[in-house]
Design a protein around this nucleic acid. Structure first.
Lengths: 147, 147
DNA sequence: GTCTCTGCAAAGTCTTTGCAATACG
DNA sequence: CGTATTGCAAAGACTTTGCAGAGAC
């Protein structure tokens, strides 16, 4: 997991300025291993800094993605893109009912795609997503899908 | 790949009605292996059926997902959720620059997550996403990221 | 004939952009 | 001090909802 200091350093190295708003966003990203959406980040920051604008949050996240300190994780259903601080290789567990997303840290034997199946892509990395029901959703069986 | 007939049958079996609009949407989904977004589907349908409404397209896609004939594929950057006709197990190649998405059909040795790392999830399936540069983006090297 | 589906319009959510004022380095 | 960044407001993209009329079965 990248630390707050590493992210700040990443901004500095690239000639970016460090503002309180940005510090708050970076801190939030590194303090939990959730995969918040931009909107969720905005709302949490708003709680302590009522005057931040959405534009600032969205711009900062985009900057971070460009600088390589953050990934846009997949999204599958609602609420916008999720962000994920770039840690080492890791995979995801995704609940098909409530859309919870959890990290998986496990080394699988190296997966290699035969050259003839790469469609000419120059592959840099890969990620595995496991789909299933999270513990909470396994209990609430009968009910209809609640997003 | 599910055929048009199978998708129609899926609707029928569930007491849904088959309208020209729906038939057009299903046909479009089965005729290509692209992973169109809802909006792209809407625009293509509009070309031949100018009076379809977005609501119809979106509703139909949602129905299909509920019935299990279609998956909401991950999305990573722009343009809304992508849809993917449920074929057998398959994986994806994703271009990190232009966001092109291509199917990969290849059997990997069964990937199993040790029970202690499933976080209590009841895993049903998994999918691998390979990230890299597509052939077109490998050529246009120097340029800055064009989304 | 019944009940689902359609189209429309409006609202809601998520994201980006232009611009003057502000504040980091 | 110069320039990147901020907040605001507005626009734009994507998606859902309510409802009356049309159409599938």
């Amino acid at each position: 997991m990248l630390t707050l200091e590493e992210l700040i350093e990443l901004f500095r190295r690239n000639g970016r300025k460090m503002t309180p708003q940005r510090r708050a966003i970076l801190a939030l990203l590194t303090q939990s291993d959730a995969h918040p959406t931009a909107e969720q980040i905005y709302r949490q920051i708003s709680a302590t800094m009522p005057d931040v604008s959405r534009a600032t949050v969205y711009n900062t996240l985009r900057e971070l993605v460009t600088l390589g300190g953050l990934s846009e994780t997949f999204e599958a259903g609602e609420g916008g893109l999720r962000y994920d601080v770039n840690a080492g290789v890791h995979h995801h567990l995704f609940c098909t009912r409530c859309h919870a997303l959890v990290d998986v840290h496990h080394d699988f034997a190296e997966l290699a795609l035969p050259p003839e199946k790469t469609a000419g892509y120059q592959i840099e990395r890969y990620q595995i997503i496991f789909y299933g029901l999270c513990p909470a959703c396994q209990k609430s069986t009968g009910e209809i899908h609640v997003p």
